[in-house]
């Protein structure tokens, strides 16, 4: 890889107090369902009232996180806007499906249809910041945000951008929670995030969030050294890929100061993390993150955000590795350095 890529700014709207103030990880207390809901900021500070009135929740959340991220990085117009989302604006998709039925296909409001398109958040960011350059949206479950990152890294390497805005966003709705509950995505009994890793039951807790980064060539405290995705690997091929990935960066597992894992407390899939930890990182400090943000397609973006926070706080962390997978299918490694 030519030239280093740095994380020049980030912002997260999540079930944590992540958007404003200092981040103190705190597993939320759930009242009556297994959903970790994002703590939403006051959008009026970011979006003009005339634009805000039509926007659904996902659009507001995505746009606001993106704008705050640009502000944190001290950039107005990035050279590229790339996002990942597994489900886009679920509320709009659901509303349009319900409207079609309720009004028997007659006189339908166009707004939910427009906003249900997966690239609508991207378009809004471009519109608001007048960014007329590269713009792309990936929609592939646990590879959505990850390909946004890879696309950004490639643009920087190609010399076609100096600053890339890359992010991931997803929301959960009651309706979608129910749909996925029918195929075992979630834990059936109410489980508190604090008890997630001792639950030993199938399913995860649902989560959501919008997390953005500015990736650039200009030096900053934390660098993004690389990303590796593996689609439906075997345990053996995952291990091989991990070894190759680290050696490509002249590292061994012993060089990793902190391992961030995507354990979701799901007894069907957490064995992946046990395997990686036991085989490669028996003595490495490891920390999970899904008790803080829940499980969702683009939860990897929250993990990256958390890694950056930790590295900014703890000077001793030289290399941080994130390993995350989504329901056993999309596996990703992300390596951070200085």
């Amino acid at each position: 890889m030519k030239g280093k890529v740095y994380i020049r700014g980030c912002a997260a709207i999540s079930p944590q107090e992540s958007f404003s103030g200092s981040f103190v990880p705190q597993p939320p207390t759930l009242a009556d369902d297994n959903i970790l809901r994002a703590k939403e900021p006051d959008y009026k500070a970011f979006i003009a009232p005339n634009n805000l009135r039509r926007m659904s929740r996902m659009l507001k959340m995505g746009l606001t996180a993106a704008l705050q991220c640009l502000q944190n990085a001290g950039i107005t117009v990035p050279d590229a806007i790339i996002t990942g989302t597994g489900k886009g604006s679920l509320q709009d998709t659901e509303r349009f499906l319900h409207d079609i039925r309720q009004y028997a296909e007659a006189a339908l409001n166009p707004t939910p249809f427009i906003q249900s398109t997966y690239n609508s958040v991207n378009g809004l960011i471009a519109l608001q910041q007048q960014c007329t350059r590269y713009n792309n949206t990936f929609v592939h479950r646990g590879f959505s945000f990850e390909h946004a990152v890879l696309d950004g890294l490639m643009l920087l390497r190609e010399g076609n951008a100096a600053n890339v805005l890359a992010g991931g966003f997803d929301e959960i709705t009651k309706e979608h929670f129910y749909i996925k509950s029918r195929i075992g995505y979630w834990k059936t009994a109410l489980t508190q995030p604090a008890d997630l890793f001792s639950s030993n039951t199938p399913g995860a807790l649902a989560g959501e969030g919008a997390v953005f980064f500015v990736l650039g060539a200009a030096p900053a405290a934390v660098s993004l050294e690389g990303i590796k995705m593996m689609y439906k690997p075997s345990q053996e091929s995952l291990g091989q890929a991990l070894e190759t990935f680290l050696s490509q960066h002249q590292l061994t597992p012993a060089d990793i100061d902190l391992l961030i894992t995507g354990q979701s407390g799901d007894s069907n899939h957490d064995h992946w993390y046990q395997f990686v930890q036991q085989k490669y990182f028996p003595d490495t400090i490891a920390t999970p993150f899904k008790h803080l943000c829940g499980e969702y397609d683009t939860a990897g973006a929250f993990a990256l955000w958390m890694a950056v926070q930790r590295m900014q706080e703890e000077e001793r962390l030289k290399h941080v590795l994130i390993y995350n997978q989504f329901y056993g299918e999309q596996h990703t490694l992300m390596l951070l350095g200085r």
Binding site: T117, Y118, N119, N136, T137, F138, V139, H140, S144
Partner: peptide, 8 residues
């Protein structure tokens, strides 16, 4: 590499 793009 397996992924999906959606830009309308």
């Amino acid at each position: 590499y397996v992924t999906t793009i959606s830009t309308a």
